[in-house]
Structure formats: structure tokens, C-alpha cells
Design a protein around this nucleic acid. Structure first.
Length: 357
DNA sequence: TATGCAATAT
DNA sequence: TATATTGCAT
């Protein structure tokens, strides 16, 4: 693990050692199997500990006490039995918090309770990204317990939590790129507006690492946005109605004037009355069209408690304005976002890599 | 239990 | 600002 958040992998221990010798200052943490080709992992760990003073995390499918104990006594920072849990990311606290004086962080034993999580490329990437996040913010996490809200720390780790060096592991933050948001929209469309719910959306999106909470949070924000847009359009509509009733009154006044003065009807009055009548009809038609398109959507469960029946924008336009909320300068928008917008749901691996920060 | 939502934290 | 988390009501 390098300081800039990048993970470097090598197959052979000797390659790792030569890399470390070239630039040992660039690395924060070494993760190795106990069983590695060409060398015993415990030896490997000892060399690194002695030569580079880097925390070493040992992994093994064996959880025999002897192996664990030996590794820890020889200076390994952590020993983890495979399959590893999703809490792998917690490990970065060892790199982040390593004492300058050489004091090793608390040793924490972990059980491998969870079903084998796939430790694939995606996973490693995610951990790498969140690592730098923890490094940047670890000092904030160490201090203070004065928050009004209940701590996010889960129960059952009280001893670890209380240790001076404990850092609350920070979850990766999902960045809702245009591509991801479009997947979200596709999911909503597929599900049908009436059955929209976080878990449902999550199932349809099929994005690795995305959680129900992520979706729920995004859905909430999206609904707030829609409400704003619809409220605004209601006001517009109200204004239109006002205009329409004024038009009606004006029409009647003019018609009376015209009818009351049949001997010399003013062509300009006829023209104005005709214009207002046409305008009124136009407003009515416009309202009907919009109603027809948006009523099913506005009355669906996607828009709870929204008492709006008219909308001046089409739903498709809403996604763009949703993503442009706050109106960031267009040129600052991710090139990727613009290029990868994809309503067909086919999102490639590289894009998925960008979802989690 | 999952949901929606407001308030609040980060 | 955007996203996450929490507590509550349903």
C-alpha cells in the first residue's frame, strides 16, 4: 500500500523486497500470505519488520493457533484468517496510525465470520481509495465523543473501541456520477413508478458495493429535487391560471364592448379579443397535454405526498437538471460522466471503479 | 420488517 | 455541497 492510496501487487516476495528497497518510504503497509512462493511468509514478514519497520498483515487460510501466535510474536501487526471479512478496510488504520517512535498499533485479532467475500479487483480498489480517506481524516476520528447523535460504532467491539489508537473505520462514499444516476433512473423505470423502493432499486442496479442505504439516501435526495421542481411548476401553473382568468375577464369586457358597439366595431378590438381567446385556449391545451404525460408519474409512489398534477418539463430533462443542481460550471463536469451516460444499463468495469470514492 | 422522511453529522 | 446516518412514525 503506497501513501497516495495505490495498491501495488507482486507475485514473489523477492520482488516485494526489491521494490521496498528502492522506495520503502512510499509504502504504508504490507499485506502478505503466510504461504508465498519461494519463501516462508513468516520469514518474509520478519525481514520487512526488521528492515523497513512497516506494519505487516499476514493472511492465511489456516487459523491454527500456532501460526497466528508465531506471526504475531514475530512482529506482524495483524493476522487475518481467510476468508476475510468485509472489514478488511479497517486495516488501514494500522498504516495510518503507526507511531513514529516505532510503537506498533494495537494488535487486533479477528475472526473470519462472514461468508467468503470476493476479494477481487473491485474490492482491492475500493479499499485503496478508502484508505487515503482514512489517512486524511484519522485525526478527526480520534478526538471527541461529544456528539449528540449515537456513535456509529457497532456493539461487540467495545474493547477495541476504547483503545487509544482506535479509529472508526470510514466507509467509502458513493459518488453519484451521471452514469450511476442513469442506472438508478433505468432501475426506477424498469421497476415501475408504483413499486419504487430502495431495495428494489438496489436489486435492479446490480452495482457491486452499492448498499441499500446508498440508494435510500439518493432516492431521498432525488425526491426532494423532484418536489422542488414540481412546486416551482405549480407556481407557474397558478400564475398561468391567473393569467387565464384575467384573459377571460378581458375577453368578456372586450366582447361586451364590441357587442355593445356593433355599428362601429373596432378591428383592433376584434384582433385583441381573438388573441386573448387563442391564448386562453393554448393555456388550456398545454395543461391537458402536460397532465396526460405526468399524472401517472406524479400520482405514483415515486412522489409521495406531492399534490401536483402538472409539470412543464419532461422527466428525461429532470435527470440532467438533477445532476446539475448547484450549477457547477459545465466544463468542470467529469469528461467520463459526459461520455459514459448510458441509458441501456451497460456500464463497464472502469465506470464501476469510479462509483466508490 | 422495510419504508419515508426530517434532522443531523461528516 | 453531497452523501451518510439516525431516530421515529407508519
Amino acid at each position: 500500500m503506497q501513501k497516495d492510496g495505490i495498491v501495488m501487487t507482486v507475485k514473489y516476495p523477492m520482488d516485494a523486497l526489491s521494490t521496498l528497497r528502492c522506495k520503502s518510504n512510499s509504502f504504508d503497509l504490507v499485506i502478505t500470505n503466510v504461504h508465498v512462493p519461494g519463501m516462508n511468509g513468516l520469514e518474509f514478514q520478519q525481514v520487512i519488520t526488521q528492515e523497513f519497520q512497516l506494519p505487516v498483515m499476514l493472511m492465511s487460510a489456516e487459523d491454527k493457533d500456532g501460526t497466528i501466535l508465531k506471526g504475531l510474536m514475530d512482529g506482524a501487526a495483524v493476522f487475518i484468517a481467510k476468508p476475510m471479512s468485509n472489514d478488511l478496510r479497517d486495516l488501514w488504520q494500522y498504516a495510518a496510525l503507526q507511531d513514529k517512535k516505532g510503537k506498533r498499533p494495537v494488535v487486533e485479532e479477528r475472526e473470519s465470520i462472514e461468508k467468503s467475500s470476493n476479494c477481487n479487483k473491485r474490492r482491492v480498489h475500493e479499499v485503496g481509495e478508502s484508505a487515503s480517506y482514512i489517512c486524511e481524516n484519522c485525526h478527526q476520528h480520534i478526538k471527541k465523543g461529544t456528539s449528540k447523535r449515537k456513535s456509529a460504532i457497532k456493539q461487540g467491539n467495545a474493547d477495541i473501541e476504547n483503545s487509544a489508537n482506535y479509529v472508526v473505520p470510514k466507509k467509502a462514499k458513493v459518488k453519484w456520477t451521471m452514469a450511476l444516476h442513469n442506472k438508478f433512473l433505468v432501475a426506477i423505470t424498469e421497476i415501475g413508478f408504483d413499486r419504487v423502493a430502495p431495495l428494489n432499486i438496489l436489486d435492479h442496479m446490480k452495482v457491486p458495493g452499492l448498499t441499500r442505504d446508498n440508494v435510500a439516501s439518493h432516492l431521498q435526495r432525488y425526491r426532494i429535487f423532484l418536489r422542488k421542481v414540481i412546486d416551482a411548476s405549480c407556481k407557474t401553473q397558478a400564475a398561468d391560471k391567473n393569467l387565464a382568468s384575467k384573459a377571460v375577464q378581458e375577453n368578456r369586457r372586450l366582447e361586451k364592448q364590441v357587442l355593445g358597439n356593433t355599428s362601429n366595431p373596432s378591428s383592433s378590438i376584434h384582433t385583441k379579443a381573438g388573441y386573448l381567446t387563442g391564448n386562453l385556449q393554448h393555456l388550456k391545451n398545454k395543461g391537458k397535454e402536460v397532465d396526460a404525460v405526468l399524472d401517472p408519474v406524479c400520482n405514483s409512489s415515486l412522489f409521495h405526498n406531492i399534490n401536483a398534477t402538472q409539470e412543464t418539463q419532461r422527466i428525461g430533462d429532470l435527470s440532467t437538471s438533477f445532476m446539475n443542481q448547484g450549477n457547477v460550471q459545465p466544463h468542470q463536469q467529469n469528461k467520463e460522466d459526459e461520455m459514459n451516460v448510458n441509458f441501456d444499463g451497460g456500464i463497464n468495469q472502469d465506470m464501476e471503479e469510479d462509483y466508490l470514492q
